[in-house]
């Protein structure tokens, strides 16, 4: 565990907590893409199946369980408890356009052709693009609530911090995983435009709105 990895994990944890608290406190999930949340639940479910086969540490297991539980709790809040506030008219990104190619790629490019390994690879690839429905929704409505942009910033920062973690681990331990690195790069690149808007607008106290 190095400082980049720890900062990445904390950022990831904060993102998920911010989202749940935002929905709970405002009693509304307006502006949040349910489709991205479904993809994230699928990401955690397929990646953390090793909870049953492989124990790494109490920290590792606790975080995995928290991510899985929080992702399903978010889906429950969006599609059940606060369903009336869900902005489905603007949440129209076709997730099968992500799931189908990602499934094919996971079957073709993986470290080992075994069920758990393929599901892990699928989750890494899917995570890299899972935010697209949310970013699509923001671009469609042309704006995001400030709390939603904090959520997106924390979620995007997490994988970017992991990139530094992987650079560190490559030099310190000789450890590298090309699948995770390439997917992490793609994931971070997708956030670039948002990061720019966040830094130039939200951090200066303005609402995140896109130029018309």
């Amino acid at each position: 565990m190095n400082v980049f990895r720890l900062a990445g994990d904390i950022s990831h944890l904060l993102a998920i907590i911010v989202l749940v608290i935002k929905i709970w406190k405002t009693r509304s999930c307006a502006g949040i893409s349910g489709r991205s949340q479904i993809l994230f639940a699928l990401v955690y479910t397929t990646r953390y199946l090793d909870l049953f086969t492989n124990f790494i540490s109490a920290y590792n297991s606790a975080m995995k369980i928290f991510f899985i539980v929080a992702s399903y709790a978010t889906i429950f809040l969006m599609y059940s408890k606060f369903r009336a506030t869900y902005d489905h008219n603007h949440d129209t990104f076709r997730i099968e356009f992500l799931i189908v190619p990602v499934s094919g790629l996971a079957l073709l490019v993986n470290h080992d052709f075994t069920p758990l390994e393929i599901l892990w690879t699928f989750s890494i690839y899917l995570e890299s693009v899972a935010i697209l429905p949310q970013l699509f929704m923001v671009s469609k409505t042309g704006e995001a609530e400030t709390i939603t942009s904090h959520y997106l910033f924390a979620l995007g920062s997490y994988r970017t911090l992991y990139l530094f973690n992987w650079i560190y681990r490559y030099y310190a331990e000789g450890f590298y995983d090309l699948i995770a690195i390439i997917a992490g790069l793609v994931q971070s690149v997708l956030y670039c435009d948002f990061f720019y808007l966040y830094i130039t607008k939200v951090l200066k106290g303005k609402r995140l709105s896109l130029p018309a």
């Binding site: 090793d50 086969t53 973690n165 995983d177």
Partner: peptide, 10 residues
Amino acid sequence: KIKKTEKDEL
């Protein structure tokens, strides 16, 4: 090749 046991990241 990365072994399953080396997947200590989240």
